[in-house]
Design a protein around this nucleic acid. Structure first.
Lengths: 224, 224
DNA sequence: CGCGGCTTTGATGTTCATCAAGTAAAGTGG
DNA sequence: CCACTTTACTTGATGAACATCAAAGCCGCG
């Protein structure tokens, strides 16, 4: 197993803060795993033994609540999967599952802890990167909660358009999952998408989405 | 200036991880400041030079948005004020102001960073404590967003009852601030409080609140 | 005493959830 | 492969929850 991934934040942090010979050690303990769509990667309540990083695919962070599943955030390649509670609790306070087929990079959490203890530069870089991600999650949620239905759905569509870097893409999540992500009923999420289609902002063929009028969609995101 | 505060988390972290003689250094750089109600302690966008901790009083963390002020969280004594973005950004991404007269404890952020670099045990403890607080903020917000008006207002009232450890207390924030905290209109927040009063769940005399039927209020919080 | 901010209540309309009913797509066992 | 089941998706109708507008009382402060 080599450390060959190009855009890996963890690798960058390692190379910026750790001596060459010590990096070997990290590489040897690292394991790549393939995960199928729908598979649960982390189960709420589970002890935190691994430190997980997403190399390929798409995951969702979510909580199970009395009202159903609440999606906290989506994770795209090179995002941390172990987040938030990792340095705070012994057990995960949320679940993570694969929304698409994924490749995850699994490190020993004990070793990461060890490294933080031993290497201050590493500690600062890692904590900084992870806190930035956690802050992004909170602020995205705060932003979302200020918007109304159409604005929320618009922001989800624009998010996917951005991570695929294309105005045409296949929705990687179901409409139900969109509704759990934006905190509105599935029927109204579908209505919002239908409205966009009727207003010629989108072309919709099932999962296939084509954003026709991006400017207007962005306006809707900002104003609704 | 002595390190005499009884319940100070930072102090606990220091004492658990740092040698006696080095603690002296920390104590000497520490400054206590009094802050009056309404004063801004941290302004969004400001560079992060200090590491701030709340000793007495009550603060609000908030963002200014096009729709008005959005309150992210309230901070009570022994909560961190510098949070979230502290290790992620160079500037604060939120504002903090005193909701009541406060006493804050100001440390040099540079020194805290220095300590993290030098002392792994300190780094882990501090990051753990701060992440726990950040996670609390996010999860409280997620919980709140699942509730309806009455449930949200009930949870705010119960929160104050808890921090004052009394069923009778003076609301430290205005009704408008409650509305900015729960993300609903001020009129409906007032209506919720009035409803509780009419249903004999509360006695209300302006800022003065007496929770008469705590069990029912908790039920409302859970079910609404 | 008068002004401005906070509070309160009522009336009205918008936004959204829910129920109902049906279509389409995808998996399952014979 | 087809009948069958399940899951995802879609639209319309209805009512609940909430925002907004309007008007008025309260209170502190210059």
């Amino acid at each position: 197993m080599k450390c060959e991934c190009e855009h890996c934040d963890i690798k960058s942090i390692f190379f910026a803060t750790i001596k060459e010979d010590e990096i070997e050690e990290y590489c040897s303990s690292r394991v790549e795993k393939e995960v199928k769509t729908g598979d649960v990667i982390i189960q709420q309540g589970q002890p935190i033994d691994d430190f997980i990083y997403l190399k390929e695919g798409l995951v969702k962070l979510y909580r199970d609540t009395p009202g159903g599943q609440q999606i906290i955030s989506l994770g795209k390649p090179f995002d941390f999967v172990s987040l938030l509670s990792v340095f705070a609790n012994d057990n995960y306070s949320y679940s993570v599952s694969a929304v698409r087929d994924c490749v995850i990079c699994v490190l020993s959490f004990k070793e990461i802890r060890q490294l933080i203890q031993e290497n201050g530069a590493f500690a600062l870089k890692l904590v900084s990167t992870m806190n930035k991600a956690s802050e992004r999650i909170l602020f995205d949620y705060l932003d979302l909660s200020q918007k109304r239905l159409n604005g929320r759905v618009a922001s989800v569509l624009l998010y996917f358009s951005e991570i695929y870097d294309d105005s045409k893409f296949d929705l990687p999540i179901t409409r139900k999952e969109i509704s759990q992500l934006v905190g509105m009923s599935i029927e109204n999420v579908i209505r919002a998408i239908s409205d966009f289609r009727k207003d010629k902002i989108l072309n919709v063929y099932g999962k296939r989405i084509e954003i026709v009028n991006k400017e207007l969609l962005q306006k809707i995101m900002e104003l609704n």
